[in-house]
Design a protein around this nucleic acid. Sequence first.
RNA 1: GUCCCGGUAGCUCAGCAGGAUAGAGCGUCGGAUUCCUAAUCCGAAGGUCGUGGGUUCAAGUCCCGCCCGGGACACCA
Length: 529
Amino acid sequence: MRRTIQEELGKELEGVHPLVLERPKERKFGHYATPIAFALAKRERKSPHLIAQELAQRFVDNPIFERVEPVGGYINFKLSESFLDRYATWALEHEERFGAQEMGERIHLEFVSANPTGPLHIGHARGAVMGEALARIGRHLGNEILKEYYINDAGNQIYLLGLSIYLAAREELGLPAERPEEYYRGEYIRDLAQEAIQHFGSEAFEREEVIEELAEWGKDRMMELIRADLARVGITFDRFVSEKALYQQWDEVLALLKERGAIYERDGKLWLRSSLYGDEKDRVVVREDGRPTYLAGDIIYHYRKFQEGFDRYINIWGADHHGYIPRLKAAIKFLGFDPQRLEVLLAQMVSLLKGGEPFKMSKRAGTFILMRDVVEEMGADALKFIFLSKKSDTHLEFDIDLLQREDSSNPIYYINYAHARVHSLLDRAGKEAGELVAIPLEGLNEDAKDLLFSALLLPEVLEDAFTKREVQRLTDYLKALAAQFHSFYNKHKVIGSEYEERYLKLSLVVALSIRVGLRLLGIEAKRRM
RNA sequence: GUCCCGGUAGCUCAGCAGGAUAGAGCGUCGGAUUCCUAAUCCGAAGGUCGUGGGUUCAAGUCCCGCCCGGGACACCA
C-alpha cells in the first residue's frame, strides 16, 4: 500500500525532492502525509503552505485519493474507499501469502549457539526466539534464509562437562569425589550422572579414563536436550556446525592469514593484527603451547561461511560478546571478504520478576532459570510474544505472573481474543470467508475505514520489522490492531446490521493480518477461546 | 580508563529517516452488560522527555560535555 502511494506521488513529484512519506499521528490528517514543502520552502523562497497548496493540486483528480489537503507545510493524503476495498479484496485473495514479497536475498543466520555444557536458560531464549522470528518474516518476504547453530564442542569446557558428570556419578555411587575449583553443577548434571551410570555401568566410574568418553557422551546428550527445548518453542535449525570439526582447516586458514600479513609472533604466541582494522588491540590466535584460541575457531567458521557466498550474514549474540565484534570483522577483512556483509545483532539481558520480586540467576551456583521452566510456567506463546516485543539490544524486564493472567494485561491473550471474536462473528452470521471476499466495501463510516486501513498495514510493518531487524514493530502493530478491533466491535453492531456483510469482510481482513502476523512470530492464532 | 545498553506519566515501555497538541499498557479513580464473548469497551487524573550547551524554519529524536543505573572489557568459550 505504501509502495503504491509512493509510486503515485513519485509520478508527480519526481526530482522535486527526496520523498518522505509518513503516517500522521492523528487520523484526521489522513492516512499518509509528506512534509516535503518544508524542505522546499527555503530553495523556492516561498512559504511552505503555499508550496503545499500548489503540489496538492496535482493530485486532486487521482482516484486512489479521496482527499488531498495542504495543511501548514504538510500535504495530507486520504485514501479513497474504492482503493481500500480493492486492496482488501486483494489481501483476502492472497490469504496466508498476504504481505509476501520477492526480496530474493540469500541470508545466513546464526543464532543460539549455546555451549552444549548445560541446558538453555532464559537469556538464551531471547536470541533463540528473535532468530526464529526474523527467519520466518524474512522468508515470508521472499528471502532465502539458512538457520545455523554453531556448536562449541572444542576446548576445555567439554572436558569440564565430562569431569562434572564423573564427579556427580561417583558421589551417587558413594565413591570419593574431590571437587576442583571449576566444574558445572546444577540439577541437570545429577540427572546426566544417573543416566551415565545406566549407560556405562557403575564400574566405569572407578577410573578417571572414562572422563573423556563421558565428555563426548555428555555433549551429545546436552545437544539432544537443547534441541528438544528449542523444538518445544517451535525453533528449528537447518544446520549444526561443529567447532571441533573446523580445526582440520586451521592450517589452511592460518597460512592464508600469514600470507596476508595478518599474523605475527611475539612471546612465543601468534597474534592477529586486528588493531589494524578497528580493534583496540591485537589478539592471540595460537597460544605458546600451540593450541589455537577460541577466536581461531570463529575465524575458520566465518571463513567457511563467507566462502559459501551468501549476500548477508546475521549473527545473534549475547550482548556480553559485543567487544568481540571488531576482532572478528578484522579477521574477515584479512581473509579478503567484506565485513560489512556481517551483521551482529545483540540480545541484551533479561531480568525476570515473579510477583514483583527479582528472580536472580547465577550460573556458578547452578541457580539459573531454565527456558524450559519458564515455558512450562507461562507457555511458549506468551514467552515468544513478550521476548519479541522489545528491541533485542535493550534490557528486558518482565514479570512471569503478569503473563499468566487472562485479560488485557496479557498481550497475547488480548490479540487472540480479537482473532477469536472475528471467527465467532462469522459463525454467528453463518457466513464463510469465501462468500465475503467480493462484497464491495462502500458507504463505510470513518471508524470502519480507519480499521480497514490499519488492517491493511501489515505488509509495510513486516517490511520495516525485517529490514530494520526490529521485530517489536510487528508485536506493537498486532496489539494496536487488536485494540482498534475491540473498540470497533464495542461501538458498532455487526450481526443484523445493514452493514453486516461489509463489516464481516472488514473483520476478515483484521483476522488475516493478526493470523499472518502471529504466525510469523511463531504463534498460532486461536479461533476459539 | 575504553566500549555497549538505558535514563520519557506511580510502574513497564513506544515515539519511525528531526516535523502537526509527547503516546500505549499496567496501576489509580469514575462509568458501560435485557443487545454479536464485559476475556471487552468508554472517560479522567498523571510528564521541567537525566542535565548543560550547540546545529535547525523545527530537537524526546542529530552533535559535544556532564550526572545516574545495568553490562562488557582473556592466551574462557
